[in-house]
Design a protein around this nucleic acid. Structure first.
Lengths: 334, 334
DNA sequence: CTGAAAGCGCTTACAG
DNA sequence: CTGAAAGCGCTTACAG
């Protein structure tokens, strides 16, 4: 079945295409007779008209589409963010197309290309490690975009992220306040600055509390081999001459794997070991000592990202960089 | 900055637009001279050319886009499905646009309209309760689509779902096999057939085992008020003259809430109560008795949905209806 | 091996 | 209050 076009409606209503376009877009309302307008609307209804967005875009150079690139849509952090972004975008009459980079810079670049071809009006992106170049290319194209969750220290661009350093500092300080003296940290071995900021915040907290950081307290694990490396680091932490008495996990994935292992070792939390982690995860809700964790204000990240993007699409402006505050959710693991 | 068009490339390379189009689309390769082709490719590269998908679509009536409508992208079930669909679609050079219906038929209808306007080539949808009418309208439009997770008994259309009745039967049978005699079930009060099929499967299993179903074993809760109603049903189950000795939860959300409550009542699992639930949830991993559950083959659902859709987009065919088999993951709750 | 031209379905400046 | 016409960036049948 051929879809109805403006022409079909014009023919049926016995008016010009121009008029049909105006009426269906609610333009020039004051100078179109009510009768004609009603006639057009009726014809459109009868023909079950749906505007052809491709034609519209070609003419107006606007698609009312925003592209969203996350690391992995099946990760709750990103799927929750996607939901917020989708809801906000829909309210503003935008549609979202999405893609997962799988933390791979090449796939990321490909997604950027696809989205540009599709003439998205703007993008919200969580760039993977090593994609600075692509971000810079994107800037040259003058296509508005806002980064979320991540940033590159030496790329001046819009972003909305957590103040990761401060969040990690808060988490660590909480362990210090509970009287812990030997605080270990497990984080990823990565070039992503927002993750490394967490280690920096941890070190800062120790320093501020007069605790001398020892390098054997820091485990930087390979993400490709996380389970094994987490277990190995935990073993190492516990076998120290002076074993750690608290641990800070810089991601919920690390926390979940670590807690499972500690559980199997019958380590008592928080008696033997106090724990704090980054990000929520249902996985820890039914653990006997639910983990105290750093909560990221996902809704604020999403809303700010959309709002900044909308403003930039309206009219280019100097980069806005937002670092939001964490919330420490205190439960029973400290 | 104005983006480069075929015309710009043609001008720069000193050839016709026709030739540029052929070369960049790798068409008629045998009758274009290597030299010209290379000249064109070089110009395209220099101008940083990206095809305008809107123009392409307008002309070819194909967008290489598929629409995905789920109930809620932040629900792990759907975000995992979305990931699979996105990956498969990308491989086949399709882009995915998505929307969440929030289980609301009106929002669902609006998303359908948007996607139709955007000329998607096909859709994968998880329709909400009460959307039969919209599905029928969609069929009239001849736009290929495949339903996932849900179906309507009296709508003949393509779908890929779990064989829910059989899955529930398996789950219930497992409890019977463990010697349980009074098996309760908590499910949603809903018009969605795939959920009601789970209750049917439960009843069938009881019947097959010679156990007479009692209506006080069935709790149908209101999704809007689930926490309270789950707790109330559990109280009721336990206060029966002959309390239930096993429970079947027809969703992971129900299971998580129920287990939290049972935990607070110090009910011992599986000693006092054996539990089985539908769908995985990390939330139960660290519970002392991880729940035995029905696993849906998400990857198969996603892959089949895409494959069926691709075939239908190629050429219309009679509806294909796939009911996939569950997997019972046995853990410690029975 | 190459190119001129029509047309996809819209929007909108312009003329009346 | 209404309409004819140009043009957005492509594809492709046709002619040479």
């Amino acid at each position: 079945v051929k879809k109805a076009s403006l022409k079909d409606i014009a023919l049926k209503a016995g008016v010009s295409i121009t008029l049909v376009s105006y009426v269906l877009n609610n333009q020039k309302q004051d100078r179109i007779s009510k009768v004609t307008a009603e006639k057009i609307r009726k014809a459109a209804r009868q023909l079950n008209y749906r505007p052809n967005q491709a034609a519209k875009s070609l003419k107006t150079n606007k698609t009312n589409t925003i592209g969203l690139i996350v690391a992995d849509i099946s990760n709750p952090f990103f799927s929750c963010l996607a939901k917020i972004i989708e809801d906000e975008a829909n309210k503003k009459n935008y549609t979202v197309i999405f893609g997962s980079s799988h933390e791979d810079a090449d796939r990321f670049a490909k997604l950027l290309d696809t989205f540009i071809s599709r003439q998205v009006d703007g993008m919200i992106i969580a760039p993977p490690q090593g994609s600075e170049k692509h971000i810079r290319d994107l800037q040259k194209q003058k296509l508005p975009f806002v980064m979320v969750d991540r940033y590159f220290p030496d790329v001046v661009a819009d972003y909305v992220i957590l103040d990761n350093k401060n969040a990690a500092r808060t988490a660590t300080q909480h362990l210090v306040d509970a009287g812990r003296k030997r605080i270990g940290i497990i984080s990823y071995k990565t070039g992503l600055q927002h993750l490394n900021d967490r280690t920096l915040g941890y070190k800062q907290a120790l320093k501020e509390s007069g605790i001398t950081f020892k390098k054997e307290w820091l485990a930087q694990i390979d993400i490709a081999n996380k389970k094994e490396e987490i277990e190995r680091s935990l073993d190492a932490f516990l076998k120290l001459a002076e074993p750690v008495d608290a641990l800070f996990f810089t991601s919920n994935t690390i926390a979940t794997l670590a807690v499972k292992y500690l559980n199997s070792l019958s380590i008592r939390v928080p008696r033997d070991l106090s724990l704090v982690c980054f990000d929520e995860t249902e996985a820890l809700d039914l653990f006997y000592a639910p983990l105290t964790y750093i909560r990221q204000p996902l809704d604020q990240i999403g809303e700010n990202a959309i709002n900044i993007l909308m403003k930039k699409m309206e009219k280019p402006s100097r980069p806005l960089q937002l670092q939001l505050k964490e919330e420490l959710i205190i439960r029973k693991s400290v």
